[in-house]
C-alpha cells in the first residue's frame, strides 16, 4: 500500500480537467517521471493561482467538484504521484479520473460540500492532513487546531488501495 498524508494544496475551483493537470503535449512521454515538472501547468492559464509555492511540498490536494474531468489520461494521477501527491479530497470526481486514482492504489476521497467548505476556511494557513485508512478518518492540523473528518470509500476501491492497484488486485483475484 502507498503512503498517504502530508501538506495540503488547496485548489479552489470546480471542473479542473485533466488537460489542466497535465497538458496533452506531454503525452508523448513514456516515463511517468518526465511528467513531474508539468503538473497543473495549464491551470495557470485562466488567471487561477494553483499556489505553485506550495505545490512542491504537497502530498494532498483539496478541491471542489468534478475534479479530473475530460480526457481519460492516467497521466493526470501519475503527474500527481511523481510529485508525491497520493490523496485528492473533493466533493466529487469525473468517473475515469476517480477510477484511475484507485487503479493506481491512490485515494480519491469524496466529502460533502459543507465539509469541503470548512476545509477551505483553513486554506490561508499551512495545513497538514493525516489519513487513517483503517478508521476512515482524515485529521487536518492547522494553526486553528485539529479537525477530524470521517470518510467512506467503496469496498472495491479500498481493496484496490490495499492491493496497491488494479493490476495487482486482478492478478491475485481474477
Amino acid at each position: 500500500m502507498k503512503s498517504f498524508g502530508g501538506k495540503v494544496l488547496f485548489l479552489n475551483r470546480s471542473d479542473i480537467n485533466t488537460d489542466e493537470i497535465i497538458p496533452a503535449k506531454y503525452l508523448t512521454e513514456v516515463k511517468k517521471e518526465a511528467l513531474g515538472p508539468h503538473m497543473l501547468e495549464d491551470l495557470k492559464l485562466d488567471g487561477f493561482d494553483p499556489q505553485s509555492d506550495r505545490t512542491a511540498a504537497a502530498s494532498v490536494i483539496v478541491t471542489r467538484q468534478n475534479f479530473g474531468c475530460g480526457s481519460s489520461r492516467e497521466h493526470a494521477p501519475w503527474a500527481l504521484e511523481v510529485n508525491g501527491i497520493t490523496v485528492v479530497i473533493a466533493e466529487n470526481y469525473a468517473r475515469i479520473f476517480r477510477q484511475n486514482m484507485f487503479n493506481c492504489g491512490m485515494l480519491a476521497i469524496e466529502l460533502d460540500a459543507a465539509a469541503i467548505d470548512s476545509l477551505f476556511s483553513l486554506a490561508d494557513a499551512d495545513v497538514k492532513c493525516a489519513v487513517d485508512i483503517d478508521k476512515k478518518e482524515l485529521t487536518f492540523t492547522s494553526p486553528a487546531g485539529n479537525q477530524t473528518i470521517s470518510f467512506s470509500v467503496a469496498p472495491f476501491d479500498e481493496a484496490l488501495v490495499r492491493a496497491g492497484g488494479w493490476v495487482e488486485y486482478a492478478d491475485n483475484n481474477l
Partner: peptide, 30 residues
Amino acid sequence: MGDSHTCTHGAFGAFAAGVGTTDLEVGILK
C-alpha cells in the same frame, strides 16, 4: 479504450467506455 471518447461506439447500442491505462492494461491481459 484508453480514450475518453470511446462513448462514441454507444451509437451502435454497445456499452463503450473510456478508461485509463491501468484498466486498459488489465483489459489487454485478462
